[in-house]
């Protein structure tokens, strides 16, 4: 018996290291939990869920009401700065916003609903709108703007077109389209094909759809993977691209009246040739 233990001594000796490692993992796990539950996170749920006339309000509600009032407030200041006449649309959206109190898991809707409202918008005015931004942004945007619209239309049908015009004036749509193009450009600057041993050996390829919710300041308040690529490395890389990126504040006349907006992006990874 003792001999057997003796034979296993090296294994036994490695237990402390294993335990230490597990403790480290558990330790950071708690960090993660903290990170994962910022109050802000709930905010985005509200905006996303807003439209669906939905099921039961779970336990969350208490949190929603709080952010709601708070968020709109910060928003107000922004529009003035931009000094755009299009304050009007805000009420319109507000009107269709009554639903917010009913929160719901974001999961189900987003997939279908992600309507690229921007594509039907004439890109030119959009650029003007954003000209107020640092000039560096304008260039990528100009490039990206044409590129972005073509994809969504292919994927989504005309559905969005009829609806959005009803909801908003054209100018707002244009601003949104240009902002979306800019988001795309910013993501483009942060994209990376993963490297390292696993990436080298598996050469993963595939498309990940990542979602993110930006507040009006352009801060990522939540993000996640909507459609997996079935390659962990790529899901992670796509998520990192989103989280690492910094975005501009929303133009005043885009998504009027909402505290945040949800975006999705399809990241298509191919190994080097």
């Amino acid at each position: 018996m003792i001999e057997r233990i003796f034979k296993l001594r090296q294994w036994l000796a490695s237990f402390p290291a294993l335990i230490a490692l597990i403790l480290v993992i558990l330790g950071t796990q708690t960090v993660k939990v903290l990170e994962a539950k910022p109050a802000a996170r709930q905010i985005m749920q509200v905006s996303m869920v807003s439209l669906p006339p939905p099921p039961a309000p779970p336990v969350e509600p208490p949190k929603e009401p709080e952010p709601e009032p708070i968020e709109p407030a910060p928003e107000e200041p922004l529009p003035p700065i931009v000094a755009t006449p299009e304050e009007a649309p805000a009420p319109v959206v507000e009107a269709k916003k009554p639903t917010p109190p009913t929160p719901k898991p974001k999961e189900p809707k987003p997939v279908e609903p992600k309507k690229p409202t921007e594509h039907k918008a004439p890109p030119k005015p959009a650029i003007k709108e954003t000209a107020k931004e640092p000039p560096t942004k304008v260039i990528p945007e100009a490039e990206a703007a044409p590129a972005a619209p073509p994809k969504p239309p292919a994927a989504e049908q005309l559905a969005p077109q009829p609806t959005t015009p009803e909801l908003k004036p054209n100018l707002s749509a244009a601003a949104e389209a240009s902002y979306a193009a800019k988001v795309r450009a910013d993501l483009n600057a942060n994209k990376r094909y993963p490297t390292g041993r696993e990436a080298s050996l598996t050469q993963p390829a595939g498309t990940v759809r990542v979602w993110m919710v930006l507040n009006r300041q352009g801060e990522v308040i939540d993000s996640g993977v909507e459609q997996t690529s079935h390659a962990m490395l790529l899901d992670r890389a796509a998520l990192s691209t989103v989280r690492r990126s910094t975005f501009d504040a929303f133009p005043a006349d885009s998504w009027p009246g909402v505290a945040s907006h949800r975006f999705t992006v399809d990241m298509n990874y191919q190994p080097a040739q």
Binding site: A148, P152, A155, A159, A180, F263, T264, Q270
Partner: peptide, 21 residues
């Protein structure tokens, strides 16, 4: 539902990422 939902999510399109050498 999608119609009603359009404004909540904006797809910014596809980004190609190549492990470019």
């Amino acid at each position: 539902a999608a119609f009603a939902d359009t404004v909540t999510t904006t797809n910014v399109g596809k980004i190609d990422v190549q492990g470019q050498a």
